[in-house]
């Protein structure tokens, strides 16, 4: 970066060019990300409605929490933070995220280990697992909604034939099973992505390590836990955080597979519902702001605790 000649040094010239190369992209990101985010924050402190976007007044934290003391001395709390529907959505989202990411990681690891082995037809298997990933989420939701149909669904048929269930289950409609249905579809759809990320990590493990372990007669299970897992830990950590963030903001699958089910309604679904469908625009904005805050805290904690290197520049 140092310069010692009179005019613009080469690196200064390059830095100036770099600025102009980056500026348009930053301007675009400001317009579609930073500005709308700030406006959402602002709306969450107002009583704006959908029909009158500019008529809102600043009402402080009332959308989040407010208290009014009645003459009888009773305290009335209002706002998202005391809204049971919101806490139900938070609980649904967190449960969904942890369970789905757990299964996707375990299954993804298994699929990745299979794909990392040399066998005939490996290309075919890799092509096959890319299919769930390539299918649009809405299409997967509809496909599975049909397969999980209570009357004519093939899943009930298979399970009845195998004797796993004694009567047909209304998978997506019943409150007991709706969450299982959402989890099932999400795990089916996203395990391939997880497997591919883990596979990329696996392929960076030098083969001669396995060779050495085999010659020394180390048990394969021990090889996995003592050699493979520690070596792919960085890739695994990154894959998990990506999936986790995706799972915490899930909207489309829940919205289409189990519409209006309190058993699966997530933070994104309830925010949008308030914002657009119930004409509680500012209230929904407050909820989406909370979702953003929860994600931000989660990511920071994860990166800090796990010492994850997301930049890919490495500190070799």
């Amino acid at each position: 970066m140092a310069t010692n000649d009179g005019g613009l040094s080469l690196s200064q010239q390059r830095q100036r060019a770099a600025f102009w190369f980056i500026a348009p992209m930053l301007a675009a990101l400001f317009c579609v990300a930073a500005w709308p985010l700030l406006r959402t924050f602002w709306f969450s402190f107002t009583n704006t409605t959908l029909s009158d976007l500019y008529g809102g007044e600043f009402i402080g934290f009332d959308n989040y929490l407010s208290v009014r003391v009645l003459e009888s001395g009773r305290w009335i709390w209002r706002g998202t933070l005391v809204d049971p529907a919101w806490w139900n959505a938070v609980w649904n989202t967190v449960r969904f995220a942890f369970v789905s990411v757990f299964f996707e990681t375990v299954l993804g690891l298994i699929v990745a280990l299979v794909l990392n082995a040399e066998f005939k037809g490996r290309g075919l298997v890799r092509a096959a697992i890319l299919i769930p990933w390539a299918i649009p989420t809405i299409v997967s939701a509809k496909m599975w909604a049909w397969m999980l149909n209570d009357q004519f669904g093939i899943i009930n048929d298979i399970m009845l034939n195998l004797g796993l269930i004694s009567q047909k289950i209304a998978w997506t409609a019943s409150t007991d099973t709706a969450m299982y249905a959402v989890l099932m579809v999400d795990i089916w759809k996203t395990t391939p992505f997880m497997a591919l990320l883990i596979l990329a990590g696996l392929q960076m493990v030098p083969r001669d390590i396995y060779e050495a372990a085999r010659i020394d007669g180390v048990n394969p299970v021990k090889v996995f836990f003592k050699i493979t897992l520690p070596l792919i830990r960085p890739a695994l950590m990154v894959a998990i955080i990506f999936r986790m963030l995706d799972a915490l903001r899930i909207f489309d699958l829940v919205y289409v597979l189990t519409p209006n089910s309190a058993a699966t309604k997530t933070m994104s679904v309830i925010s949008r519902e308030n914002m657009i469908d119930f004409d509680k625009f500012a209230y929904g904005a407050a909820q989406s702001t909370l979702l953003f805050a929860i994600l931000a805290v989660f990511v920071s904690a994860y990166i800090w605790l796990g010492r994850v290197d997301l930049s890919g520049e490495g500190q070799k």
Binding site: R39, F43, S288
Partner: peptide
């Protein structure tokens, strides 16, 4: 989370 920019984008 795309929902976090939804209100602002809607306005824009």
């Amino acid at each position: 989370p795309q929902i976090a920019v939804l209100a602002g984008l809607f306005e824009l």
